[in-house]
Nucleic acid binder design. Sequence first.
RNA 1: CGGGACGUGGCGCAGCUUGGUAGCGUACUACCUUGGGGUGGUAGGGGUCGCAGGUUCAAAUCCUGUCGUUCCGACCA
Length: 572
Amino acid sequence: MKMSQIFVQTLREYPADAEVISHKLLVRAGFIKKLANGIYNYLPLMWRVLKKVENIVREEMDAAGAQELLMPFVQPEELWQESGRWNVYGKELMRLKDRHDKSMCLGPTHEEIITFIAREGIQSYKQLPVNLYQIQSKFRDEIRPRFGLLRGREFIMKDAYSFDVSEEALDKSYKIMAAAYTKIFDRCGLETKMVQSDSGAIGGSVSHEYMVLTKTDSGENDVFYCEKCDFAANSNHTTSVLPPAKTDGGFAKLEEVSTPNVKTIDEVAEFLKVEKTVICKSMVYVADGKPVLVLIRGDKNIEEIKLLNATGANELRIACEGEIEDLMRAHNFNAAAGFIGPVGMDKVKIIADLTVKELKNFVAGANKNDMHLVGVNLSDLSKDVVFADIRLACVGELCPQCQDELKVTRGIEVGNIFKLGTKYSAKMSATFAAEDGTEKPFIMGCYGIGISRTAAAAVERYHDENGIKWPVAIAPYHVIVIPVNAADEKQMSIAEDIYKKCLSNGLEAVLDDRDFRAGVKFKDADLIGFPYKIVVGKGIEKGLIEFKNRMTGEALEIKPEEIFDYIKVECV
RNA sequence: CGGGACGUGGCGCAGCUUGGUAGCGUACUACCUUGGGGUGGUAGGGGUCGCAGGUUCAAAUCCUGUCGUUCCGACCA
């Protein structure tokens, strides 16, 4: 392809509305163009990248024995009623009506549809196992889309679904997918970590996420890992072991103390001269519309996903001021946030983190403004407390497997695998005849890869101040040939010659034939991120051209016929 | 959901306080110049100033509403 003919416009400046580097660079280098909030056009360069990621995914899925199909993007309400998710999925599910007023939705994921397909198409255990997948646009009406392709509303995803006769067979399918995923991201040139995770709205028992470790602070997830053993988990699923701490407040008896305008844990600890570890932090949440009092040791924080699971609710948020007032009024208390405590709260569900179990003679809000209680014990509460692990792990805590110190890093989730079990097959009556003649629901697994997010994660991971550094396997083109001086006939003709040789050697090459100064062409080449750059300049008088590797920075002067010794491209 | 900020050629912005011919940089077109990291110059084309009302002789500018974009937030960070 000639550079002058590629449909692309690079910008001199970053777009004003972009925050993360992958978003800024993809817009500035002319890969994407926003159409609406969280909805992007994939321009020709981007589409080439996405097709490469797709092809790697497709090849490895096929090699793992999965079969590709394509399901509809618009789905009928009925199936979602069957699975029970129509009323559970919330506003992220984009609902719409057709001309006959029939209720439909845009597919955010396809468990319902694939279960329908299996129900219709699989009658016998002899047809199992089977793994079906598709690569398609998904739509999730995110509360707050941002970060460009990293969290769009419309995005491209590969989703696969396995059907097995038993849990043991599912284990096998799951392991095959795990191995395929490792291979896929390897081939994309991305280092990933497989981590334990929460299974969220998709449901199921076991799940793992594949995280690209960005080596910077970008990425939406915190990943805790252990260098000594193989432990790694998303922060929303990390159970850590706490180092010893003082948990006895030492207050001899239960009494109220005046704490004027002392609200936060830090202020309380400072005012009463106690460790934060002997204060019980009390927060009011609203789970599916009902208030819940949540307790945790003062030096620790709530992990809301864990809390959500502990409540069994679908939706969880922290209470607003008015809701707190209502709750306090119901108990004939008058206290604002900062002075709330568990003593006397008998008309509300109380969920406490496991750290609270250890507390003795501790400090808590008195449910009166400007007052706290000291010397509180759990036996002073008038209502039973539900204990659960709802704590956000943090650095300094210990690995649950080997007690070594946990480390944390930021990661971008590019893939996940779930064991679904019979969650969908049971509800949707998707069964097969087992070997013993009985009807059994399918044992299912599901496996996703964010295609567009993977591409964005690659930019997030590999870039410098001049632009993108695409891994060769997913770069839009492999090599760009730049004649320094477009007016120099010798340079031009040799550049063209090299370009043609690249093409006939199976390389995806671009010739920068534009009548621009060298600097402009170099800047664009770096910005767009061609992995290999061949420069034909004055050196040609001595029979030499320049070769640069964008990823490694390697730069050499070589003879034109030597370039193929340096360009390593997989599956040419 | 709540709060703030911003909507002016493709992109980045000024102008608004104090109402009076719509500007700058970049990108684009043509010509000249230059030719190893976004050359320099001349001449052009492109915007009903998000939209709708209102005030006024006159509105990008003041007022009201609305839509969009964006950041932040929930006694934790």
